[in-house]
Each structure stands twice: as C-alpha cells, then as structure tokens.
C-alpha cells in the first residue's frame, strides 16, 4: 500500500502564483523518502497540502488511502509534521506544547502523560521541560517540534528541513533516531538542503523543480550516474 499518493496536484496561491503544477508522486509504506529541490520549487507547498496547512487547488492527495480533503480527519490522524519554521507558542513549555498536540489528536490524559515522558527522554528535553519555548536554543526548539510531530505516533512522518540550525551532535542523534523509527515501520518523508543527509538516510529520492517532479528513483540509481546525487540535483535545478 502507498503511504502517500499524489495525483495531478496543483496549488495556485491568491494573486495567481502557481507553486505546484500537476505534481504526481507515490511514496510506498515503510519508505524513507527524500524530497529535494531548490527554494521555491514547491516542496513546502506540497508538504503543507498533505498536512492540511494549505488547501490544494487541483488534483488529489491520499494518505494511506484517505483523501486529505474529503477524509481529512482520518488522514491527519495518520500524519506527523515537523515544520521548517518554529511555529510553537513561544510562551508555552515543551510539556504544554506536547500536551496540547496530544489533546488535538484526541489522546486521553493518561496516554498523553505517558507519551510525553517517552518523548522527553527520546529528545533529551527532560532538563528543559519547564522552560518557555522562546528561552530554548535553536537546537532545542527543533527537538521540541520533532517531539511534537511524534506525539500521535504517526504512520507517516513528514520532516521539513529538520536539521536546519542543528549542531552536528544532535544531527547525528536525530539521524539514528529517524533510522530506528523507519525500521519500526514509520514512513518518513524528508526535505533537506543537506544532500549528505538525504544520501545517508533516504531509500527513495525525488527532485522537484518548478512545481513538478523532475526526477524520481531509488537512491542507488542516482549514485550510478557520474557525479552522483549532487550532479543530478545541480543539472535539474540549473534548468
């Protein structure tokens, strides 16, 4: 079964800017999928449309067979998103942020409490759990957003630039953690400007340019070409 099926998806913003144009994409269940592309290529718009932050203007998007518009509640219950921007309440503590998110997903108080304890340990947030979000460093804020994305134990985890502004140590920790999650069966979609990260983690890679998928394939297919992933990426994004 596909974790994600996107057919002829388009998004045109008010004012006529076409961010994505007839995009088609399939992500298999259990995959670790890398979505690459330059700034403005349509990666974030695609992610926002999958998760409900933005309304698609054309085509269809399904998460594990659930349409993100007509079956939005079922679809969203299966997805976790760690966004590029820090969009948490700056006056709230990590515990509050996680608790609210769990509540929005309909988790009981007991389940939320247990899950928060697990996530505080997993993301080394225990010492910072009572600090306001605005008082945390960039790396710690990133961890909170990642923990928040994991709060509902999603089947599809979407990470939009998850290691931007994160130190090397946390990046390595995070990579290991993501690989473990993927082994447990969580499908992961990752966008990143670090090609090394995508090469290391992803099994399948798609490069988006001008709102369309310019190239998609197994990671090893990209390595077979002269210059590897970087060369393919530069060639496509140059056009």
């Amino acid at each position: 079964m596909n974790a994600l099926t996107i057919k002829n998806f388009s998004k045109e913003y008010r004012g006529g800017t076409k961010a994505v144009d007839e995009l088609n994409l399939e992500v298999k269940e259990g995959d670790f999928f890398g979505l690459l592309g330059p700034n403005g290529a349509g990666k974030s718009t695609t992610i926002h449309s999958i998760t409900g932050i933005v309304n698609p203007t054309g085509g269809s998007i399904e998460v594990f067979g659930k349409n993100v518009v007509s079956e939005y509640r079922e679809a969203r219950a299966l997805v976790g998103l760690s966004p590029q921007e820090f969009n948490a309440d700056i006056f709230a503590t990590p515990v509050q942020i996680l608790d609210w998110m769990g509540g929005y997903y309909g988790m009981s108080k007991k389940d939320r409490k247990e899950r928060i304890e697990v996530l505080l340990d997993q993301f080394n947030l225990r010492d910072h759990k009572k600090k306001m979000f605005r008082m945390l460093s960039g790396g710690l804020k990133r961890r909170v957003l990642l923990a928040r994305a994991m709060m509902n134990s999603p089947k599809l985890l979407i990470l939009d630039e998850p290691t931007a502004g994160v130190d090397v140590e946390l990046r390595r920790e995070l990579w290991q953690h993501l690989q473990d999650l993927n082994k447990e069966g969580v499908t992961i979609i990752l966008t990143s400007h670090y090609l090394e990260e995508v090469e290391k983690l992803c099994k399948t890679i798609a490069i988006i340019s001008d709102g369309k998928v310019a190239k998609q394939g197994d990671k090893h297919d990209f390595f077979k070409e002269p210059g590897g992933l970087e060369s393919a990426y530069l060639e496509i994004t140059k056009k």
């Binding site: 998760t51 969009n87 998110m101």
Partner: peptide, 14 residues
C-alpha cells in the same frame, strides 16, 4: 500571526 494555528490545521479537529 505567530503561525501556531498550524498546530490546529494539521490536527484532526473538525
């Protein structure tokens, strides 16, 4: 304004 509304938008709240 703070974009925290995205927490609501991604959730299954009807």
């Amino acid at each position: 304004f703070m974009k925290t509304i995205e927490e609501l938008l991604v959730s299954p709240l009807s």
